[in-house]
């Protein structure tokens, strides 16, 4: 918690480029404005850097409310328009339970256990893009 108190200024979300993939690490308690800023910046970065995948690591996030949930869903939708796939990685159990209770199941959002699994998911061919949470039973 102390770590969260001494968080740096709003707008500081570390974004790392690894090959064709952007790794975004969210941590602590996010200001609404920081999240919105991130959403705008990411679109630009996806275009300018020409990446094909975005991994958003939220393993350090203690709560996701409907606002942040919406931001995540919109980032994925925007990225998809820009031909990049998005994977949200590392959601904590308590956060997942709360989101489901809140009524936000975020269908269509790709998920992975952690950043590494997310990277592996993005390396797979596009046909299997619905791996992770969304796979349906095959006949």
């Amino acid at each position: 918690m102390n770590e969260a108190y001494s968080r740096p200024e709003a707008g500081q979300v570390p974004v790392l480029r690894l090959g064709d993939i952007l790794l975004v690490t969210l941590q602590g308690d996010l200001h609404d404005s920081t999240a919105q800023q991130l959403q705008q910046d990411l679109s630009e970065t996806i275009v300018s850097a020409g990446v094909t995948g975005v991994v958003i690591d939220i393993s350090g996030v203690e709560i996701v409310d409907s606002f942040l949930g919406r931001v995540l869903a919109e980032i994925a939708a925007q990225a998809s328009l820009l031909a990049a796939r998005t994977v949200v990685a590392g959601m904590r159990p308590a956060v997942a339970i709360t989101l489901v209770e809140l009524g936000l199941t975020l269908p269509g959002l790709r998920t992975a256990l952690d950043a590494q699994a997310a990277m592996a998911l993005l390396e797979q061919p596009v046909v299997r893009s619905h791996a992770g949470g969304m796979r349906r039973e095959r006949a």
């Binding site: 990685a89 959601m91 159990p93 956060v95 997942a96 489901v100 998920t111 992975a112 952690d114 992770g132």
Partner: peptide
């Protein structure tokens, strides 16, 4: 169903 949905959010099936 809630358990299934929560597992999905975490990236598990």
């Amino acid at each position: 169903m809630k358990t299934v949905a929560a597992a999905r959010l975490m990236g598990a099936e």
